[in-house]
Amino acid sequence: MRKSQRFNILFGLAMAAVLLSGSAAVFAGVPVPLLPEPVKSAVEGEESCVLPEDEMRRVHMDRLKHQRDDTMHEGVRTSRFSLKECISCHVTKNDAGEKVSVKSREHFCNACHAYTGVTLDCWDCHASQPDGGQ
């Protein structure tokens, strides 16, 4: 019993150390990614082309998923929340002027998701750059 208690305490301490060092690294300043600006500007008369930025940050995944099911199963093909539209509007180019794929940290989606540590499997199937990167 006593042995296992000691083990538990040690284990807890080790976990705490790992967590602290991890968050310390965050606070020590991994730079917040600079999101590439969209190619198209906002729709006339609206503040933004899809949704206001802060809202978009919170709900883009829900909107994308909703649109995904509508398009897949019902053939609804509006562009507002379509992944293809995100990709073609927020396309990023590298210094050589080539469109970057999601493998690059400069890619619009990856810039944020790499920072927040969220792994996506969209790109297992979907193209991550418009027109095959041409």
Binding site: K84, I87, S88, S101, D124, C125, H126, A127, P130, D131, G132, G133
Partner: peptide, 10 residues
């Protein structure tokens, strides 16, 4: 890799 935009495959 390099899928076509309107034809996702994985």
């Amino acid at each position: 890799e390099n899928q076509i935009e309107y034809a996702p495959r994985g």
